[in-house]
Design a binder for these strands. Sequence first.
DNA 1: GTAGGGTTAG
Length: 472
Amino acid sequence: MIIVSEEERYGLLISAVMRRMCLGLSTKLLNISVASLCRTRQLEKAEAALIDGIRLGVLPDVVTYNILITGYCQVVGFDAGYHVIHRMKEAGINPNLITYNSLMAGATRQGSLACCLDMLDEMLDRGIVPDVWSYNTLMHCFFKMGRSDEAYRIFSEILLKNISPCQATYNILINGLCKNGYIKNAMMLFRNLQRQGYVPQIVTYNILMNALCKLKRWKGIMRLFDEIRELGIAPNAITYTTAMKCCFGSRRYKEGLQIFFEMKSGGYAYDLFSCCTIVAALVKSGRRLAAERCIAHMIKIGYDLDIASYNTLINWHFKEGKLEKAYNLLGVAESRGLDCDIYTHTILIDGLCKAGNFDVAERHLSHMKTMGFNCLVASNCFINSLCKAGYIDYALQVFNSSDMRDSCTYSSLVNNLSKQRRYRLAAQLMLSCIRSGCGYWHAKHSAEALNASGSVPMGSYHVVSIPSDFSL
DNA sequence: GTAGGGTTAG
């Protein structure tokens, strides 16, 4: 038996407490550093920090592993995140509610409903009670997969189980309804909630504004935008970007730029998203100098450009007729490991067509098809440029050999056929456009074509004068 | 853990 004095006993006690305090503090510090590395996608460094910690006697806890799981899910994918659970078990740490919620979020991000449901099952098997966030995430996952009915069932389950929905629950519900085409229902739900005293967040307004933007409902958006200000809710960069996009999308460049100036004068740092929105609009409306100024700003700030930003800049070079610069920039994007997406290919094809390089454009179009991309817009660019360059019969061949068409496809053909006074064919195409449910567009030549062909009663459409020397 | 950017016709 070792005899220790009273003094020694106190000393040992104090040192144990100190060690524990130190350990607690250090694990917390370790977690902060791992979290910050994971947030900046530096997983290898996060792992190195973990190893260093263990070497120094600082053991990771459940929080450390949960942070790692979130990081792996975000950077690599769900499987990599799930793998961390095995490491937790080896370290003798049990996964908790946050572990499974993070994994469900990871599964949702990559659109895997099966994994999301598996995580819920595993959670229940372990006797962990899901919270509002588990249900929020599951609801989000169902909506993301287009399964609105089941998503709504999860919302009902939240209420049935007497779990209090949080702000995000309603946001996810409203967003899910909007993204699945139930914008009217989402709007009604929003107004009903407001009548019941629900105070919407800026996120809620952003979701609704974005939904109306897709419908090109400019007035509706502006009403919401005014409402935000009346309620004293502070708009953020997303609100401004969405409002601007809607203005630009409906060709209200003046109003869009006004919002941009309001954002600037309000001291909002305009980020990469808003920069791309503005540059794209300036390029499209031919405001060359303003576009250049904005691009110079983008470069000066030193944003970490992603593929969408490169697409914006590549498109700018093409519109300026600088093909070589466009290709160089594409090379830069690829060398940075960024994958070209549907926009990149479409922009390339459009750029090639506008430069009159139809052979290469056509080859790239078939290459795009073999890669499994949806080529509707790219094909429309090809058809439209062929028409404008006078190769309208070849454009018709391309049109007839493909079943991909929308109102843009018809619009290009009808307008250009009408310009060549080939009204009969133009009218036929226009009617088949309307019959196929592609929608209708307002164009001088389309109306001419219809009126001239006598296919529909005069006055049904926007009527314009018909050339006096016209004959069918 | 919920919201925003980039491509075609008129």
